[in-house]
Amino acid sequence: MRSSIRFLAAASFAALSLVSGAAMAEDKIVIGTEGAYPPFNELKKDGTLVGFDIDIAKALCEEMKASCTFVTNDWDGIIPALQAKKFDAIIASMSITPERLQKVDFSAKYYNTPPAIAVPKDSPLKDASPESLKGKTLGAQGSTTHANYAEKHLNAAELKIYPTADEYKLDVAAGRIDGVVDDIVVLTEWVKSAEGACCKILAPLPVDEEINGKGAGIAVRKGDTELADKFTKAIAGIRASGKYKEIQDKYFDFDVYGK
């Protein structure tokens, strides 16, 4: 019943949709996110987007007095989609890294958490040192800082790259890979949930600023500094007004903004 109505809606936007130039104007911003990275952003089964990123984005838009719409896009195509103007900004826990800065511009960070490594509960791994990782296989999501980190610092192990976090979770649960590298918050939430019952956090990993960047920021098209500055200002605004803390406390019991 619900699906049939959605089908009609989908069929009607199958016509080439001409979004008017107003989308570029200041009061309307289209925000791209992934929707598969709980607890930061997650597309629920009923089609609603929830998560820390989403709440922050809504608060920022309110602060900027802009009306925002959300679009989900697969992670590995999210920067090309931004460049192709499918949306104006990415709020999807994207770390500000030198590599990405060559292609997009960023606002200031809106949170910063370190990476970690998670392994199955019965794993023989004791630590994340090169000696113990030798001959093991690690998983990470593609196009992420975590994949790059594993490639540089954990290169004693073989690295497998997955399109979404859900897929490496399936594979580590199945025992195909010996561990996964991702954001510590994401992994902590996951091992707490029923799906992550297979696994535990082995250790947080030391941050390499060259790779992990200076925290997660809001990506905009190269040269769109005006929008980036607005977001930066709005982040400072919600931090000052207490709105940030309110959202943070809803999800976490620690400070995600970092020092």
Binding site: A14, L16, V19, S20, G21, A23, M24, G77, Q83, K85
Partner: peptide, 28 residues
């Protein structure tokens, strides 16, 4: 097609001074 076509259309439109956004969704 998904990324290239969109960029191509965007570039061509920008070249003729048409600053509107043409969205090619996944279906199209």
């Amino acid at each position: 097609i998904y990324y290239g076509l969109q960029m191509l259309i965007q570039t061509v439109l920008a070249a003729i001074g048409f600053e509107q956004r043409i969205e090619i969704n996944a279906f199209l």
